[in-house]
């Protein structure tokens, strides 16, 4: 068991390193792409800032609090995007038959796709998200201790798992159809956009969807209840609010199970 975990970790490291070395040969493109991502995300947060400047507040929320949510969601999304990129290109691999190549290697396909290509150009969103997160954390005016810091870390990791799970689900759909995958962008890119603001501002049906079906509430209002000591935000017992982001783990695992089903279907239809 331990040996195979170490082996997988080593292979993952080597494949990622290989992917980075490949991309490094296209440095100019990488720089421009990162810059464009930086511009886009800066404008996004600029809009939040501008709306706060115009309207004074978002009912019940201050700018630094929204900045923390924005930062958590964006950093998590950037990590998931970097790590699950292989799933993003997967529909194309099915079409060209390149997926067969992965099946011919003695490793799980999901693992190979995760290590397939780690896009360093996603660094723009990562840097910007981290900066906003740090800025927001400093502006919260709360006592920072080890538990609170690790809660923020947990939110980032949990969020990355949820977004990665969604990318896996989107790719899994490609076993059935490759024509209407864009719909899933509603929960991936849309989920990221949604989680940049507190969940409480949305309509009830929308809140319910992002609590139950896609548990992004677990990196949004629920942990904020613990972080800001505002239990009314979650309606859950306090200890649970501290652990809420852990939901990301089981969510990702469930998505990988669905992936397995899709893979079995592929083996019987070949398309």
């Amino acid at each position: 068991m331990i040996r195979s975990v170490r082996r997988y970790a080593r292979i993952y490291g080597r494949l990622v390193a290989a992917s980075v070395r490949s991309q490094w040969q296209y440095r100019a493109s990488f720089a421009l792409y990162s810059a464009s991502q930086l511009v886009a995300t800066l404008a996004e947060f600029g809009a939040i800032w501008a709306l706060f400047a115009r309207f004074g507040s978002l009912p019940g929320w201050r700018l630094p609090e929204v900045a923390v949510l924005y930062g958590i969601s964006n950093v998590a999304f950037a990590l998931a995007e970097a790590g699950a990129r292989g799933f993003d290109v997967f529909p194309g691999m099915v079409r060209t038959g390149d997926f067969d190549r992965l099946l011919l290697r003695p490793l799980p396909t999901a693992f190979q796709l995760a290590a397939h290509e780690v896009q360093i150009m996603r660094v723009g969103r990562l840097v910007q998200g981290s900066a906003i997160l740090a800025w927001g954390c400093m502006g919260l005016g709360i006592e920072w201790d080890a538990t609170r810091v690790s809660l923020v870390g947990l939110c980032v990791v949990g969020g990355a798992c949820i977004f990665a799970g969604l990318f896996v689900l989107q790719a899994t759909l490609a076993f059935w159809t490759i024509e209407s995958l864009e719909v899933v962008n509603i929960v991936t890119y849309g989920g990221n956009q949604m989680a940049q603001y507190p969940l409480t501002i949305y309509r009830p049906w929308f809140r319910l969807f992002f609590t139950v079906a896609v548990p992004l509430a677990a990196i949004n209002t629920v942990p904020m209840a613990a972080l800001l000591s505002r239990p009314e935000l979650s309606g859950l017992p306090a200890p649970l609010t501290w652990l809420a982001p852990c939901v990301g783990g089981p969510f990702l695992a469930a998505c990988l199970l669905v992936w397995k089903l899709g893979e079995r279907r592929y083996a019987s239809t070949g398309s």
Partner: peptide
């Protein structure tokens, strides 16, 4: 397995 149409090697390495 070798596919004549597709390489299994890493293109840029």
């Amino acid at each position: 397995v070798v596919f004549g149409q597709r390489t299994q090697l890493w293109w840029d390495l």
